[in-house]
Design a protein around this nucleic acid. Structure first.
Lengths: 191, 191
DNA sequence: GTCTATACACAGATAGAC
DNA sequence: GTCTATCTGTGTATAGAC
């Protein structure tokens, strides 16, 4: 029997890149087929619809962040500062490699008020991210401060990703990640 | 001669609401026509293309922010804190009334890597915003601190608008605006 | 599993009557 | 200035050969 030429995993990997760059609605099945070296017909052999591809792309991307980035928050051999440094470095690469910034922010802004099809998948990403940062900041912030400083950190990073794509300079994201590190070091901080 | 039933200004006003909620690509001419009580044919009497409507919508929205919100930074009768309070209150209303959060953030994420058609219009909005906040923060921050704290403030607000739409609570934006106020009050702050 | 061909719906835009 | 009708392109999805 012949080998499977194109695996669903590889199709999803390429589809994430296209969706992140062009957005959900602007991406068409021809784009996805071309990116994976398939035809539209062959593509539909693997996935039932564009929505199906998108959902699996969001899930795969969240899984990647959890396994490669957010899990660093649990490494007890490292200090909180070292954990944040490693997470920041990987986050920077993830959000600046290729085009499109944050796949999840793009998707929530694009779809939230049209159809709530992907809200569960996107919420899972941000909840996982919040939890990871929370684990690190809890060494420094009190319980009542913790929630807001975590929200501020993620908001600062996501907003910087927006501005980064407008002004076309990754330095804006780098500075936001540096601020997230300073929040762990500084004595007097917001809030 | 008969009176003009639908003014271009009113068409743009309604189009902004639709574009902000559904996004540029997902909005079709029927949506815009319906929102203004016109038919597609009548709509094309006023505007040459969807891109034309979008560009004028972005320009009109920027003009509104400059005349109604950003100009408060120049009111010398008010203290810097009072100016920021007033700007924050109007910004909160602008970003939470209706659906879609920030029209400009939505548009830059949607279009930046597909076509750079609207980058000039969006840049004008953010540059105007930065300038306004800069005028207020310059009373407290040194020249070398100023740029980053302004960028941080806008990033924090924009990121909070993203999260606000995911978690469906305007409180997230309110807290980001409160932090922008604290940056003017606190003694020790980031950076 | 991959291909070509095509069905079907809807989008942006135009023509021409009123 | 607004309408109905229509042209044309493109999008999602399916059918069926190889």
């Amino acid at each position: 029997m012949p080998l499977q030429k194109t695996t669903p995993q590889e199709i999803i990997r390429q589809s994430i890149l296209v969706f992140r760059r062009k957005g959900y609605y602007r991406t068409n099945m021809s784009d996805l087929a071309r990116a994976t070296g398939l035809t539209k017909g062959a593509f539909y052999h693997h996935f039932s619809s564009k929505e199906d591809v998108m959902r699996k792309a969001l899930q795969a991307s969240t899984q990647w962040f959890c396994e490669k980035v957010f899990c660093i928050a649990d490494v007890e051999q490292l200090s909180p500062g070292e954990r944040l440094d490693q997470m920041a470095e990987l986050s920077f690469k993830a959000f600046t490699s290729g085009e499109g910034g944050c796949f999840f922010a793009n998707t929530v802004l694009e779809t939230a008020h049209v159809e709530d099809t992907f809200l569960a998948e996107i919420t899972l990403f941000f909840d996982s991210w919040k939890l990871a940062i929370q684990k690190i900041y809890q060494h420094k912030y009190s319980a009542e401060q913790l929630e807001e400083v975590v929200e501020q950190t993620i908001a600062d990073i996501e907003g910087s990703i927006v501005l980064m794509q407008l002004y076309k300079t990754p330095h804006l994201l780098q500075k936001a990640l540096d601020r997230s590190r300073q929040r762990l070091a500084d004595k007097n901080d917001l809030p």
